[in-house]
Design a protein around this nucleic acid. Structure first.
Lengths: 238, 238
DNA sequence: AACGGTCTTAACACATCGTAACATCCGCCC
DNA sequence: GGGCGGATGTTACGATGTGTTAAGACCGTT
C-alpha cells in the first residue's frame, strides 16, 4: 500500500538510490540507525519500480546516475508520490538549490557528508512528514498563538477568529501542509493558483503580506511565516 | 444497468483508466485499500467496454489517453451512466475545471496526487453517491436543522414549514440530488429552467439568494448552500 | 378588471483579486 | 563611506465576480 502517513519506525522503510557501491554501503549503514529497513536501488528505472511496488517513507537520491539524469527521476517521482525526498549531490549554488526545490526536492546534502548530519536530516524529514500527516488527519495545529484548523477552514489569532479570503487560505494551507519546509514562490504559485503564466513573484509577495497582516502577532516582524532570502517562504514549527 | 446505488464494499468495484503502467500500478494499489476489486483499462475503447460489461461504482479517468481525447470519453460515459467519475489530469485552470464539471466530471485530481488524497476523494464520491441514492428512495433528508422531503415537496427549518416557489423548489431539488457536489450555474440552469437562452448567471444568483433567505439559519453566512468561488454552488453534507 | 403571487431584469453594494507603483532593506562595487 | 541594483514589503486602484434589493412584467384566479 503506497500510503500510510504515520508509521511505526519498525514498519517504516527508506530507499537509497546510489550507483557507487562503496558510498551506498556507507549510506545504508548510517540510515539503519534511523530505520532498520533500508532498500537499495542503483538506477532510475529501479527506483521507480521500487516506489511502485511499495512506497518508502523517504527517498535518498543521488544526482548523476548512470541511466538518466537524477533531476529527471526527481520530476518523475514527484508525478506519482509526495514522499519526502533528500537529494545528495556535489556542489550547489543558490540557484541550483532553488531549481531542485522547484523540481520537488525536500532537502539537500552535499558530498562529503558526515553520518551524523545525514541521520539528522533524515529524522528531520520524517518528523516533518509525520507532522503534515497528522495535520491532515487531525486538521488542527497551534503555532505561536495562531490556531489553524484545516478541515473547518478556521484561523484564530490569540483566540480572535480571522477572516481569510480563499486565496489567503490556500496559501496558508500550502505552507501548513509543508510546515518547516521552504517553499519557493514558484511552488506556492503552483499550489495556490491554477494559471500557467503570470508574475508569480509579485502575486506571492502581495498575498504573503495580506496573510501576515491577518495572522502574524506583529506583521512587521514575521515569526510564523519567515522569508528565506533568495529561496522562498517557510512556516516555522515550534 | 446504469444504477446500483448502495453496495456492500465487498461487491463494489472501481475502474481505473490510465495508460501509464507505472502510474496505474500506484493508483490501483492505493485504491485497493478503499475497495478490494479494482479493474484496469488503458484506453477509451477498453473503458467503454468495461463499463458496458459491468458497471463499476466509480471511475478514475486520466485525461490524455492514446486513442482519444479523455473529455470525449467523459461525455460518452455520461451518455450511458451516472456513475461517480473522478478526473485525473495535469494542472488545470479554473475555466477548464468548470468545463469538465459541465461535461459531467464529479471531482478532480491533479498530478502529483498523494495516495491519501486519492483515497479520500474516492471515499467521498462513494459516500456521496450512496447519499443521493438513499435520498432518491427515502426522499427525505435532514441537514443542519433543515428537513427536506423530496417526494412531499416539503421543507422545514427548525421545524417551521417553509413555502417555496416552484423555481426555488426545483433549485433545491437539483442541489439535493447532487448533494455535496459543486454544480455550475450552467448546470443548475439546465436542471431548473427549460429555456435555451438567457443570462443564467444572474437568474441562478437571484434565486440562490431567495432560497438561502428561506432555508438558511443565517442567510448572510450560508452554511447549507455554499458558493465555490469561480465554480458554482454546493449543498453541503453533514 | 383587479388582485396576488411569481419571475425577470436592472441597479447597486460589496468582497476579492490582479496589477502597478512606490517604499524599504541589504549586499556589492567603486 | 557612498551609491547602486536587486530582492522584498506595502499600498492603492480598477476589474471582475458575487450578493442583495426593488421595480416592473407576466400569469392565473376570482
Amino acid at each position: 500500500m503506497p500510503f500510510s502517513p504515520v508509521r511505526d519506525p519498525e514498519t517504516q522503510s527508506l530507499l537509497v538510490v546510489e550507483d557507487d557501491d562503496a558510498l551506498r554501503a556507507v549510506l545504508v549503514e548510517a540510515l539503519k540507525v534511523v530505520c532498520p529497513t533500508v532498500r537499495e536501488e542503483t538506477s532510475v528505472a529501479g527506483a521507480l519500480r521500487a516506489c511502485a511496488e511499495r512506497e518508502p517513507d523517504l527517498v535518498l537520491l543521488d544526482l548523476g546516475l548512470p541511466d538518466g539524469d537524477g533531476s529527471e527521476l526527481l520530476v518523475r517521482l514527484r508525478a506519482v508520490t509526495t514522499v519526502p525526498l533528500i537529494v545528495l549531490s556535489g556542489r550547489e549554488g543558490e540557484e541550483e538549490k532553488v531549481a531542485l526545490l522547484d523540481a520537488g526536492a525536500d532537502d539537500f546534502l552535499t558530498k562529503p557528508c558526515g553520518a551524523a548530519e545525514l541521520q539528522a536530516r533524515v529524522r528531520g524529514q520524517l518528523r516533518r512528514s509525520a507532522f503534515s500527516a497528522s495535520a491532515r488527519s487531525a486538521s488542527h495545529m497551534t503555532i505561536d498563538g495562531i490556531d489553524i484548523d484545516l478541515a473547518a477552514q478556521r484561523v484564530t489569532r490569540e483566540g480572535v477568529p480571522q477572516r481569510l479570503t480563499p486565496t489567503e487560505w490556500a496559501l496558508l494551507r500550502a505552507l501548513a501542509l509543508h510546515a518547516d519546509r521552504t517553499l519557493t514562490p514558484k511552488q506556492l504559485w503552483d499550489l495556490v493558483w491554477d494559471r500557467e503564466f503570470g508574475d508569480f513573484a509579485v502575486h506571492v509577495r502581495v498575498h504573503i503580506t495580506h496573510l501576515r497582516r491577518k495572522i502574524e502577532p506583529n506583521p512587521a516582524i514575521p515569526r510564523l511565516i519567515v522569508t528565506e532570502t533568495g529561496v522562498g517562504y517557510r512556516l516555522v514549527l515550534p
